[in-house]
Write a protein that binds this DNA or RNA. Structure first.
Lengths: 341, 341
DNA sequence: TTGTAAGCGTTATCAA
DNA sequence: TTGATAACGCTTACAA
């Protein structure tokens, strides 16, 4: 690979002039500029960005660490990040922690050793919190998204999952439900904990009592929702709830399938609210449209980039904590058909 | 950010010893090693990998450029790449060209300016070929995947799409079809061109004539398949084919939906073969299991990493061209129910 | 307009 | 075992 020095020699000028030519700076005579451009072409010169990053002390890259790159759930967030860097001169590079805390730690370290100007860390695993805490001790710019880690002095973007849970209960109550149960998400994620808290708050607000059996600890897997619902149908026979709030759409989809198989009609006998507006997991599944809480993931991706840019530009500026509100999307799974709603 | 020099000063030793300590090299007395480690901790020292990359002339990164990061189709390939770099000391960083040739060009340039040791370029757009040709003129290590670009002296990994098309026709013929039509994929992708060629080869082999109306130029969109099939049903009324080979599952899914709506039974009246084994687009769609040609995308991802590692290690070695075979997966959409197959 | 030289944060060679 | 010192490929005062 030809270097800037090679070009200078070939063109018979100093490195300074070549550097200026590359960077479209003034102070090069037209003749020399032409000679240099010719030399660059002849030698197939490409500037070495690593050397450039070293002297400029910036890479113009932001690193994005997700839990997985093989999960449609992240698509909107990824799009947001991609749109966020558009026309900023930055590029976003993505990698995944593959749902393993050690791997995520590794990727965060990888990036933070000067390889990028800042990091976006997506995910809400409680295991991540110590990793984040460690990173927070340094001055490296980063922003966490989704994790309600409650760490002082770091950038964060979260959805108000507690109020989302409350909204779900409010909605079910408004549709006439009184016996509302909750399937949690994976409780090792802070979002699941908050959504559960929202459920509890909502129930309390409406004067509805919650007993332990009304809360089913589930996960973010369709099969889990299916199996647990199936078991519930067996165990509770005639004592099923009239409404269920699921910590995630994917769980709801599995559970609704179990209900359908058992001949229990949704929403007539049991109303359902999910979380995430996960169109990939609901599309074409032959289940009623799922009422759900939608997170503005694309906007969050854009905002993550913006916040990070601010911190990179002004590292001593105060960190930001942004709270987005989920939006209730009402569909068939919670409708009152008999009332024509 | 503290530098190696800061650590050396703090520990009262030379940079050499600090460097050796970081890299776990011999030649440091235990006392000094301890002092240095303490200083590193105290200063929260993190080695600057950009500086390291500059002097070592390698980054230990491989860049992966996809057409999109928001497309489940790539999941298996991504997994393959992730598995491929495991335990190699390399990391894979992903980005997307967002289906725009200019953007893809930009990302390839971005990577190839010394920011990574090698690039995996996925996609078969004909627009990409000039980009690749340009990159091929340089010595930068890369491997293209999927694109049958027929460029000398570069690494490539492709699936034998021609033979895939032939296999599809063979299979339909073996199931009694004689009037077999073809919905192409996006014809701006080389894979679509090859699959069409395979269809033509197969038809010829079996002595079946192909007229222009039997080939429908389609795309990789479900809606496109749906609309075109609908139109075909209107136009051809009683003259529909008895078998269709689709250049992609996603198109097939749309078309089958149109057939179902028109009361045309698959596979009884019309047998269908797709391409890609795209479980995300077929799952739970309430259509019969789709007979399809499966590409070993995960293996291809692993192989891409391996080939790239070889080229990085030995840049003067001959480039490799690897051909994977698609595998026919027989499902209900092409079954002979009356014969009990 | 031009070129010299210092420096970015590392590694590595070579004396001491 | 140590520590100068010269790279790596670039940018940027500063001087000419």
């Amino acid at each position: 690979m030809a270097t800037l020095y090679d070009v200078a020699r070939e063109a018979g000028v100093s490195k300074t002039l070549v550097s200026r030519t590359i960077n479209h700076q003034p102070g090069v005579s037209p003749e020399n500029r032409k000679k240099i451009e010719e030399a660059m072409r002849k030698l197939q010169y490409t500037p070495n960005q690593v050397a450039r990053s070293l002297v400029l002390q910036k890479t113009n890259i932001i690193g994005v660490v997700l839990d997985s790159l093989c999960e449609p759930y992240y698509f909107d967030f990824i799009r947001g990040v991609e749109n966020g860097v558009d026309d900023t001169g930055l590029e976003a590079l993505f990698c995944s922690g593959r749902e393993l805390p050690a791997k995520k730690d590794r990727m965060i370290n990888f990036f933070s050793q000067g390889r990028v100007d800042g990091i976006i860390i997506y995910g809400s695993a409680t295991d991540d919190i110590s990793i984040i805490r460690r990173l927070a001790k340094r001055t490296f710019p980063f922003v966490i998204v989704e994790n309600e880690a409650h760490i002082e002095g770091i950038n964060s973007i979260v959805v108000d999952n507690v109020s989302g849970g409350e909204m779900a209960v409010d909605h079910l109550v408004s549709r006439g439900c009184r016996n509302i149960w909750h399937f949690t998400g994976d409780m090792k994620k802070t979002i699941s904990q908050s959504r559960k808290q929202g459920y509890l708050n909502g129930m309390k607000k409406h004067g509805l009592t919650v007993t332990p059996k009304m809360i089913i600890e589930s996960s973010f897997e369709e099969m889990m929702g299916y199996m647990q619902m199936k078991q519930l149908i067996n165990e509770c026979a005639g004592n099923l709830p009239d409404g269920i709030f699921f910590g995630a759409d994917v769980t709801a989809v599995g559970a609704v399938r179990a209900l359908q198989e058992a001949g229990i009609r949704v929403p007539e006998q049991l109303k359902v609210v999910g979380f995430d507006n996960d169109i990939y997991c609901t599309a074409g599944k032959g289940i009623p449209g799922l009422t759900t809480l939608c997170q503005p993931l694309r906007e969050m991706g854009i905002e993550a980039v913006n916040i990070l840019r601010d911190t990179i530009q002004n590292p001593s500026a105060e960190r930001k904590n942004v709270l987005f509100s989920p939006k209730l999307i009402i569909r068939e799974s919670s409708s009152n058909r008999e009332e024509g709603i």
